[in-house]
Computed example of a mutant assay.
Amino acid sequence: MPSPAVHLGLDAVIFAVTAEAPRILTVRDAASTDEALPSGPLDLEAHSTLERGVRDWVAKQTGLALGYVEQLYTFGDRFRDPRERAGGARVIAMTYLALVREQALPAGLGAQWRDCYAYLPWEDWRRGRPDLIERELAPRLHAWAGSDARKHERVDLTFGLDTAPWDPERTLERYELLWEAGLVAEAARERDPKYAAVPGGGFALALDHRRILATALGRVRGKLKYRPVVFELLPPEFTLLQLQQVVEALSGNRLHKQNFRRLVESAGLVEGTGRLATGTGGRPAELFRFRREVFRERPDPGVYFPGAWWSR
Results as ranks from 00 to 15, higher is better:
residue 82 P to T: 03
residue 82 P to R: 03
residue 83 R to A: 15
residue 83 R to Y: 09
residue 84 E to M: 10
residue 86 A to K: 13
residue 86 A to P: 10
residue 86 A to S: 14
residue 90 R to I: 07
residue 90 R to H: 12
residue 90 R to C: 02
residue 91 V to H: 12
residue 92 I to G: 09
residue 92 I to Y: 11
residue 93 A to Q: 12
residue 93 A to T: 13
residue 94 M to C: 14
residue 95 T to G: 10
residue 96 Y to W: 12
residue 96 Y to P: 06
residue 96 Y to H: 10
residue 96 Y to D: 08
residue 97 L to Q: 02
residue 98 A to R: 06
residue 98 A to K: 05
residue 98 A to V: 06
residue 99 L to V: 02
residue 99 L to P: 02
residue 99 L to Q: 01
residue 99 L to W: 02
residue 101 R to W: 02
residue 104 A to P: 13
residue 106 P to V: 05
residue 106 P to K: 04
residue 107 A to Q: 11
residue 107 A to G: 09
residue 109 L to T: 11
residue 109 L to K: 13
residue 110 G to F: 08
residue 110 G to W: 09
residue 110 G to H: 11
residue 110 G to M: 02
residue 112 Q to R: 14
residue 112 Q to W: 09
residue 112 Q to Y: 10
residue 112 Q to M: 12
residue 113 W to D: 07
residue 114 R to H: 03
residue 115 D to S: 07
residue 116 C to R: 05
residue 117 Y to D: 08
residue 118 A to R: 13
residue 118 A to Q: 13
residue 119 Y to R: 12
residue 119 Y to S: 07
residue 119 Y to P: 05
residue 119 Y to E: 07
residue 122 W to Y: 11
residue 122 W to S: 00
residue 125 W to E: 00
residue 129 R to N: 02
residue 130 P to H: 00
residue 130 P to C: 01
residue 131 D to F: 01
residue 131 D to P: 00
residue 132 L to T: 03
residue 134 E to T: 08
residue 134 E to N: 08
residue 134 E to W: 04
residue 135 R to M: 03
residue 135 R to S: 06
residue 136 E to T: 11
residue 136 E to Y: 08
residue 136 E to F: 05
residue 136 E to K: 02
residue 138 A to K: 08
residue 138 A to D: 06
residue 139 P to W: 00
residue 139 P to R: 02
residue 140 R to A: 12
residue 140 R to K: 10
residue 140 R to D: 07
residue 141 L to G: 11
residue 143 A to P: 10
residue 144 W to N: 11
residue 146 G to K: 10
residue 147 S to I: 13
residue 148 D to C: 01
residue 148 D to K: 03
residue 149 A to R: 14
residue 149 A to V: 12
residue 150 R to T: 11
residue 150 R to W: 07
residue 150 R to V: 05
residue 151 K to R: 06
residue 152 H to G: 14
residue 152 H to L: 14
residue 154 R to K: 09
residue 154 R to A: 07
residue 154 R to H: 06
residue 154 R to Q: 13
residue 154 R to D: 06
residue 155 V to N: 05
residue 156 D to I: 05
residue 156 D to F: 05
residue 158 T to L: 03
residue 158 T to I: 03
residue 159 F to E: 02
residue 160 G to C: 04
residue 160 G to V: 01
residue 160 G to I: 02
residue 160 G to H: 04
residue 161 L to Y: 00
residue 163 T to G: 15
residue 164 A to H: 10
residue 166 W to F: 13
residue 166 W to I: 10
residue 167 D to W: 09
residue 167 D to N: 14
residue 168 P to R: 08
residue 168 P to V: 09
residue 169 E to D: 09
residue 169 E to Y: 02
residue 169 E to F: 00
residue 169 E to M: 08
residue 169 E to L: 08
residue 170 R to E: 04
residue 171 T to D: 12
residue 172 L to V: 01
residue 172 L to K: 01
residue 174 R to T: 13
residue 174 R to I: 10
residue 174 R to S: 05
residue 175 Y to V: 04
residue 176 E to T: 03
residue 177 L to E: 06
residue 177 L to M: 14
residue 179 W to M: 15
residue 179 W to S: 14
residue 181 A to F: 09
residue 182 G to V: 15
residue 182 G to N: 15
residue 182 G to I: 15
residue 184 V to M: 13
residue 188 A to W: 08
residue 188 A to M: 08
